[in-house]
Every structure is written in structure tokens, then in C-alpha cells.
Design a protein around this nucleic acid. Structure first.
Lengths: 169, 169
DNA sequence: TGGCAATTGTTGAAGTTTCAATATTTTCGC
DNA sequence: GCGAAAATATTGAAACTTCAACAATTGCCA
């Protein structure tokens, strides 16, 4: 306790300043954690993801699997790489989730004939039927958000998020 | 394969329909994954978090530890529960991260004298000094975002995220 | 063409998070 | 005040993710 007080004494401050110019910034409290964009995004994402998770739990399916099914729903095969990109997962994680989904007969693998390094993923009939039920749950969640938050805000937020994502690449 | 085909046979579809009205929705392709709010939030969060992560890596500190240090910086103790809430972690995860930070002498535990079930967490002097360096890195990241994305957009996005979070509680 | 580098996907080990159970202390009704 | 219920934090096992290494295939260029 008194150690901390010592550092805030003026001569201590000078010593710290000489160590690194970074620490020599104004000694203010800085902006609170809750005002950082990274924090607000994490908090909002956590909250919305939880809501969606609890809806999809009615079908016993994790959010990631819904995303995978939704991407594959159009019937065009995707390589593991494309799929990983699209559903925001890294390769080894995706491989293992896909293993489970293959066991559940929701998706299947096909060796790409054009490039035999690749594996093309497809959605089974069973996967498509499940996907449609999941889509309904997801849509009802989004409808619930719009109810509380407003249609205008929701669309504006989506637009801003898209721009942010673009500007970050 | 032929099992899947069997399920899509018409009399099967009828059976499914009677099970749940949800499946009876229009068979359209539905809105793409990339237009769902939950997905946009996940993507934006992932991107921004990665940027921040790579900045903080210069000090070898994960984002969660920066959050913890920032919350404790004011010198007021926080119980594990309060802290978990503030930094968006659940209790057991926080306990284990704190264990590491105690080993690194960044924070320390004190039994709460008013309520001996609680443990109050404090930031050490070492933790505070590190926290200030981390704050600089985080601020420079946010400055970088504002450069590419614009000051107006950033503030508007923050405002909308705060409202979303409020409306979700 | 032959071989070296790059691309793609998987695997096993290591690390992390989560779940359920536990220990401790406090609160509250009776 | 006593005892049951609630609150708080931790623990160990299970589940999950990530990292680094690997295997297979393709592209490249000399």
C-alpha cells in the first residue's frame, strides 16, 4: 500500500519517465475498459451469441455447426479452407467439428477430383432438413432482437459492422 | 446416401411437417449467413480482437489479462465475482488465469474481512506498471482503427453497441 | 523432367475452458 | 440461536481449441 504511494510521489514519476517514454503519458486514469471498442464488441458478441446458443440448444446444435450447415446448404461443395474462412474457425478446429458432424451424418467429405489435396464438404439431406429448423430458430432470435432494439438501429449497426470489417482488411 | 433420399420422400416430409410447424416455413434459401447480426458481431469481434492481441503480444500478455489489470488499476479491490463480470469471463476460468497472474506477481489475493467467503483481488505495483504499457498499446490500436474507419463511424458504432447491450438485458 | 517449395488437410500433444461437485462462509426463517 | 438454503470461490475431470509437426499433392523453375 505505502509502496504504491511512493511511486506516485513526484520524484518517482520522474524516474519512471526516464525509463520509457510510453509510461510518461499523462498520468490520468485513462479511458475506462468499457469504452474501448474491442471490449464493447466482445460484450455484445458474447451476449448475442449466448442468446442464439440457447435457442439452437433446442435442437442440441452448437452455433458453429449451424454456420457450417448454412454455408453448405446451397449444395456447392467447399474445401476445408474455404469453409474455415467462412465460418470463422481455424483449420484443426474445423476438422474436428466436421468429424463429429460426419458421425451424425449431417455432412460428408468428397475428395476433390481437380486437386487431390483438397476435400470438398457437402451437406447431407439430413443436414439440410436440420439446417432449416435451425434457420427458423435463428430468425426468431433476430426478430426478438429487432423487437427490443429497433429495426433502424439493427440495420444501422449491421452496416457499421460491415464497414468496420472491410476497413480492417 | 440412400437413407437420406428416403427421408426426402414425400410421405416422409408430411410426417416431419406434422411433428413441428417450424419446418413448414417457406422453403426459400433464407438470408445468407453473412447478413446475420450474430455473425457480423462474431466476425468484427474476431478481427479487432486479433489486432489487439498482436499488439499486446509485444508484452507477452493475453487480452484477458490486460482487462483484468485495467479493472484493478484503480486500487480498489474486487471480488472474483465482480471481476469475472467485468472482464467477461466465467468463474473457474478467471480463477485459473488469476493463478497465473499471481505467479507472475501482477496481482494478489486478500481475504475480504467483511465477508470471508470472498477474495479481494488487487493489482501489484508491477501489475500497474505493466498495465500502463499495455494501455498505450491498446490506445494505439484504437487510434489505428479510427484512422481507417473514421472518428464518426467509430463513435456511432460504440453508441449502437452500448444500446444493443442494454437492450439485451 | 526432376526436384524443391508451397498448398492443403489431418493428427497428437499441450494448453485452455467449461461443467459438476466441493468446501467454506453467510443469510434468513423459525 | 439453529439449521437449512444461498452465495462465493476453488478443484479435478472432461471437452474443446490451438500449436507444431506431418503426409500428401501440386506448382514452379531451372
Amino acid at each position: 500500500m505505502h509502496i504504491e504511494r511512493a511511486i506516485s510521489a513526484s520524484h518517482s514519476l520522474i524516474r519512471v519517465k526516464t525509463k520509457s517514454s510510453i509510461v510518461a503519458k499523462p498520468p490520468s486514469q485513462d479511458t475506462p475498459l468499457t469504452e474501448h471498442l474491442a471490449y464493447l464488441l466482445a460484450q455484445a458478441n458474447r451476449e448475442i451469441n449466448r442468446q442464439l446458443e440457447s435457442r439452437l440448444a433446442k435442437e442440441g446444435v452448437p452455433v458453429e455447426q449451424w454456420r457450417i450447415l448454412k454455408v453448405l446448404f446451397d449444395g456447392n461443395g467447399r474445401s476445408m479452407g474455404e469453409l474455415a474462412e467462412a465460418v470463422l474457425l481455424n483449420h484443426p478446429t474445423l476438422t474436428k467439428i466436421i468429424d463429429r458432424m460426419v458421425s451424425d451424418a449431417l455432412v460428408y467429405r468428397v475428395q476433390d477430383p481437380k486437386d487431390r489435396r483438397k476435400v470438398l464438404m457437402f451437406c447431407s439431406e439430413r443436414g439440410k432438413i436440420l439446417c432449416q429448423r435451425l434457420n427458423s430458430l435463428a430468425m426468431s432470435q433476430e426478430a426478438h432482437i429487432v423487437e427490443n432494439y429497433g429495426n433502424k438501429s439493427t440495420n444501422e449497426l449491421k452496416r457499421l459492422l460491415e464497414n468496420l470489417i472491410d476497413s480492417a482488411n
